[in-house]
Design a protein around this nucleic acid. Structure first.
Lengths: 358, 358
DNA sequence: CTGAAAGCGCTTACAG
DNA sequence: CTGAAAGCGCTTACAG
């Protein structure tokens, strides 16, 4: 070995204090005199001491760490959520660890087990298809961004999909659209949005909602579904996609068919990703405010960890139907370039004007 | 307390063996008889034993864990790299942990320190601006995806930016383009690409390369820079952007100015992100093969960890100029919809044809 | 406010 | 192939 890493024993020797005093000073315990604190900090800096977190996790009663599990890093909806979580954790000085559910699948380990093996104080699951049996009942846990599949009694914080669908359909109907299509896909979130869109459309008998899509909720799938929908229902004047990338696929399908957006066809996404805000797309979308979802989820988790009872001091706009407590946040509508007035009716089908790409 | 988590002592008691035997069986040590192994595994399953990883990190000599540090999760170039890393680690049974450099900035901790505090066996830095002083000389470390700023003697595995720029310019020149613009931004990668593009352009005196951009390499910045470039240099027939999102901004600028792509203007990105492959964009781009970069970086790191000497048994296509060993991988060109033949010369400036959006 | 002792749950030699 | 002992670097009561 080159030379052993310095431990708190080395620091204690150098600072002329006891081992425990070093531990307390390093963690910022208020019951340490100013003089000793600086002595310890100086000694630690001089020796280049790095606290061994494995040791402190093992010895301590808590880790001041919150784990976030996302199911797929490639789907960036978790980014604003993570930022919201971070913001809510800052005032409590809690550490954040991120795991992708699939990253260590070659080890055959469950991501929840992985987090627990390092004794996180609590867990935020921004993921759908995790095995709920892997979660011990005592673990503070909040499911965020989705209400799907969760352990009995676990809290969920998510956007209100029904309200989001209503906003989208109100927007489109307000622009005169009556023949609307919905692009969906697999996954609990897409399913929830489809059901919400169908319910919102059913409130008005004059509105028809054609639905297509069953594969992954990707841009490619949105493109294919939109092509099919527009060919089977040429009187469609507006498309509401389950998410922004599917809407991007719909834009590609529109271009392919020579339809101008929004003059001939309005297109809406959902999620309010950075993509939707881009100068090239300027996509109308429903904003689920995932940053606020993250903030609320983390705030709730902290209360659960501190044992202040999540159910009683719950976040705003909460509904608690029996055994599945959840907080639903209100989404908002962002109207941009891709939605406009429905074209005047000219018959069931209109000629596709030739149009250059881009 | 509800009830204590079972430890290997409980498992040992239940299986009728010693504590150490349990430890060996659980880790798959080959020197454990089949009968005892199954007895231990059964007992562990029955008790719901979860190994405490903090304890094993503290007690063991290695952690079989490789850390990956990315500087910004919002920039998805690291995704294929991470997948390549994962693939290379699978056969060695190594665990992967991911950290974003900024995720715990509120704790004031350096991400390298964080990784070391849990004693990773080695580190892959897919990040530019990390403090190289924080890295102990003994730590196996590979910088991946960039050759910028790294600790003395540390390996870098990256795409050959000079070769990539040459490919892009050859492609554009082959299509007849001579008035080319380059969109750049801050960051070591953008700088490397700008210098490479300038060098490649300089090889042919008939080719002019106008350069713009100094802010973040974002789509918004690409949009603004492209607008300015196209107004100041109306004879530009092709744009090479530092990355795909900046190219997306250039597409938005082209639409704004009524330029058809690729008839009036060719646009190229770099990075080969999923975005570039999308049906809506079909963006021509340079593919740095970040998955292969990840594979090579992880392969090298494993050799460094195992002490098999990275410098001698280095990966293919390696150049080792003295103290900064690096492996450069060859990028390839992906030609799609957004690049085409240069328009016939009609004078210095051409009228901007009106064109509907989308 | 401070210090000596016990212990967190594992892994590692080492003797059988 | 197996088991008793020491120890990894911390935190936590607990007595001063």
């Amino acid at each position: 070995m080159a030379h052993r890493q310095p431990t708190i024993i080395d620091v204690a020797r150098r600072a002329g204090v006891s081992k425990s005093l070093v531990s307390m000073a390093l963690r910022g315990d208020p019951g340490v005199s100013e003089a000793r604190r600086t002595a310890v900090l100086d000694a630690a800096a001089q020796l280049g001491h790095r606290p061994n977190r494995a040791a402190s996790i093992l010895a301590g009663t808590r880790t001041d760490t919150v784990g976030v599990i996302v199911d797929d890093l490639r789907n960036p909806w978790y980014l604003p959520l993570l930022e919201g979580v971070r913001e809510a954790l800052v005032p409590h000085g809690l550490r954040l660890t991120l795991t992708d559910a699939a990253m260590n699948r070659h080890l055959g380990s469950d991501p929840v087990d992985d987090a627990l093996s390092l004794r996180v104080d609590g867990l935020i699951m921004a993921a759908e298809a995790l095995d709920p049996r892997a979660v011990p009942a005592e673990l503070p846990l909040v499911v965020a961004g989705t209400r799907a599949q969760r352990p009995a009694g676990a809290w969920a914080v998510a956007a209100d999909e029904a309200a989001g669908a209503r906003l989208a359909l109100e927007h489109l109907r307000g622009l005169g659209h009556r023949r609307i299509a919905h692009l969906t896909g697999t996954g609990g979130s897409a399913r929830a949005r489809r059901e919400a869109a169908e319910a919102a459309a059913a409130e008005d008998p004059a509105t028809s909602l054609a639905v297509d899509g069953e594969g992954a909720p990707t841009e490619e799938a949105g493109y294919i579904s939109a092509l099919r929908l527009l060919r089977e229902h040429p009187d469609t004047t507006a498309i509401l996609a389950a998410n922004d990338v599917m809407a991007m696929g719909a834009l590609a399908a529109a271009r392919e068919l020579g339809l101008r957006v929004p003059e001939d066809l309005s297109v809406m996404g959902q999620d309010a990703t950075p993509l939707a805000a881009s100068p090239l797309l300027r996509l109308s979308t429903v904003d689920p405010h995932h940053d606020e979802v993250g903030r609320a989820a983390a705030g709730l988790l902290v209360r659960l960890i501190r044992g202040e009872g999540g159910a009683t001091s719950a976040p705003a706009s909460t509904s608690t139907p029996g055994a599945t407590p959840e907080a639903l946040l209100e989404p908002t509508l962002i109207a941009r370039r891709t939605t406009g007035p429905a074209p005047a009716e000219t018959g069931s089908s209109q000629p596709f004007p030739a149009q250059p790409p881009n």
